[in-house]
Design a protein around this nucleic acid. Structure first.
Lengths: 78, 78
DNA sequence: TCGAAATGACAAATATGTTTTACATACCCC
DNA sequence: GGGGTATGTAAAACATATTTGTCATTTCGA
């Protein structure tokens, strides 16, 4: 890999708070820790595919509602 | 985490071959190596979320057509 | 204003995903 | 049979995700 080819955005915080869940609540629901939720909401890194699926299911939203892929804006400015 | 809570299935091989792509072709398209494609097709592990998105895009199929989450079959036999 | 609950940061350790290199097998087709 | 292409295996090194533990800051209700 090496060159970043895009990034994954998520609406976790918005949908989690709408559902009235704390980070800890949500972490328990999806079987992860609070720090993991925090890091992912802050987009420090993207969740694993499995965790992503559990998150969408826990919030009862379609996968693509929760996660979007944003292509690199092009710029061959490397 | 620790306890496995389900697994991610994929239809990569089927859709890749339908598209007339070799593992190497596909790897190039998504910016990964042939071994990565091989391992993921064999479900040795699941792709990262970003790679998963690139795969779906490369094959021009909806995300959920390519990947499905299968819940653990229950068994509170822990 | 006190205290508890929720959130944010950060580092070390572990787990999982990805690359690189190398070799083996199978299939064609010439 | 020999050469090329596609696929499978495997190990080491590296990158990223996740946990565990700990502390700081914010928020909010009693």
């Amino acid at each position: 890999m090496a060159v970043s080819k895009g990034r994954v955005l998520n609406q976790i915080r918005q949908l989690r708070t709408q559902a009235g869940l704390t980070q800890q609540d949500f972490a328990n629901l999806v079987g992860a820790t609070r720090q993991t939720i925090l890091a992912i909401e802050a987009e420090k890194y993207a969740p694993s595919l499995e965790l992503a699926f559990r998150m969408a299911r826990a919030l009862s939203v379609p996968f693509e509602t929760l996660f979007q892929f944003e292509e690199e804006v092009a710029g061959p400015r490397n």
